[in-house]
Amino acid sequence: MDVSFAITGKGYVILAADTTAAHSIIKVKLDEDKIKALGPHLLMAYSGEPGDTVQFAEYIERNIRLYQIRNTYALRPSSAASWIRRVLADSLRSRKPYAVNLLLGGYDTNTHTPHLYWVDYLGTLVEVPFAAHGYGSYFALSLLDRYHDPEAPLEEGLATLKRCIDEVSKRLVVAPGNYKVKVVDKDGVREVEL
């Protein structure tokens, strides 16, 4: 039932994920953070099988951190995405695959470009201008086809994101109540209030 969105704009990527932790039909937590900062300019929103998600996200987080410590510089978004995809693709053909879907948003400080990657539990990796996972994708993708602007400033991007959240709240029966929103741009990662 997780819902997550992401959009790119002029020099930034916005990621949003709902904050509910559900157990069957019961909401057990309302302020769960499902977006991890993997580095100074890299964010990952994760959703899927409870248990797998946190386990996988922490494994990725620590290995990306290890790379940074060993090499004194962080992996660029495209390289990080390739490695994370490989972990999922190898996991898919193992005895117990991770059932985790991801949105990876990063800012490449070498080329000064924002990047957004849609990754699913099969190890499918694709770079996109905007993306969504979960039931929210059925509403958000068509809305973003109409309103997304890759050259929009941050305020406009946040307004577009707000439209996605409002549309899901209006039309989806199992819509989540709260979202956490994070932005990555040239200044790094930060949380923003909608």
């Binding site: 849609w118 694709v126 770079e127 996109v128 994708s137």
Partner: peptide
């Protein structure tokens, strides 16, 4: 195209 069944995800795969 790249889709997930009938839902299209990307038009540049």
């Amino acid at each position: 195209r790249l889709g997930v069944q009938s839902l299209s995800i990307s038009s540049n795969f």
